[in-house]
Write a protein that binds this DNA or RNA. Structure first.
Lengths: 141, 141
DNA sequence: GTTATTTTTGCGAATTGTTTCAACAATGTA
DNA sequence: TACATTGTTGAAACAATTCGCAAAAATAAC
């Protein structure tokens, strides 16, 4: 229950919408969740929090580094609590499954490439798209 | 002047909008151009081609593999003629410069990561963001 | 603890990027 | 030439996201 600290540390006042949204993001069920989906969950929970507020709070969390924003294919942004180390993503285009991975060699090469091109790297985005060969990979949504 | 062939090869009829748009994309000035910017250039040239047509043609070109679509940060799609081999991009967040690069080791590792996660890779997107250290790197736009 | 000040929220309207639609034009084919 | 198919158009529709602003909280000052 130290979400309060989490918010304060980020320089954000503790308010109900921020708390609720933070809770939702922290639920392991909800890794890689869109703003719209956060909103839907709030509605289900009976909270009266506007969609605009959800976007606002997500942006604040992003600025504060509490979460990471991803642009998977398909237009909308997807948010993810940043509790772990840096990692990249594999996305199955059929079932939508998202797998996280980390590869030091790739990271290393990226730095090298940047340096070779006189660029100071601030961040990167790497998404691998494909089809997973799991039995339960089902076309959904 | 073999744009006609280019279009036919892609199974597209040769029409004025498609020709004009292809020409714009082939201009080295216009690597990494947005739909909106293609439209603006057409207007400047005095062509009466609708924005809807621009989007439609770009999508057709994408489907046909004539061009590649990128989602750089900032929302809108950016298109690039695919005359060369596969490559990824370095983007300077200050001046907007885009540098293309290719790194076999990164490609290799991506395949490996995909395989390790039971995923058949179809494509990927890798963008490195940073600030270039060029003298002429100027905040613009 | 009340009041004053600063933030934050909520809602609807506004934006942005993109797609769809219905009418019309062009082109291909028999 | 007549019919069918394909392409083009502007306008309207859309989806994701942001903005403007008055009302509601939260915090600070008495």
């Amino acid at each position: 229950m130290d979400q309060n600290k989490e918010l304060k540390k980020a320089g954000l006042k503790v308010t109900l919408p921020r708390l609720k949204i933070l809770q939702i993001l922290q639920d392991p069920e909800n890794q890689h969740i869109s703003a719209e989906d956060v909103y839907k969950i709030l509605i289900e929970q009976g909270e009266e929090i506007g969609l605009a507020t959800v976007y606002r709070v997500l942006n604040q969390f992003d600025d504060a580094g509490i979460l990471n924003r991803h642009h998977f294919e398909g237009g909308k942004s997807v948010f993810e609590i940043s509790h772990k180390d840096h990692h990249d993503h594999l996305v199955c285009l059929k079932c939508g499954k998202v797998v996280e991975f980390e590869d030091d060699i790739i990271e290393e090469r990226q730095e090298l490439v940047a340096k070779q091109n006189n660029m100071k790297l601030t961040h990167h985005s790497l998404y691998l798209y494909g089809e997973c060969t799991d039995d339960n990979c089902e076309q959904l949504d």
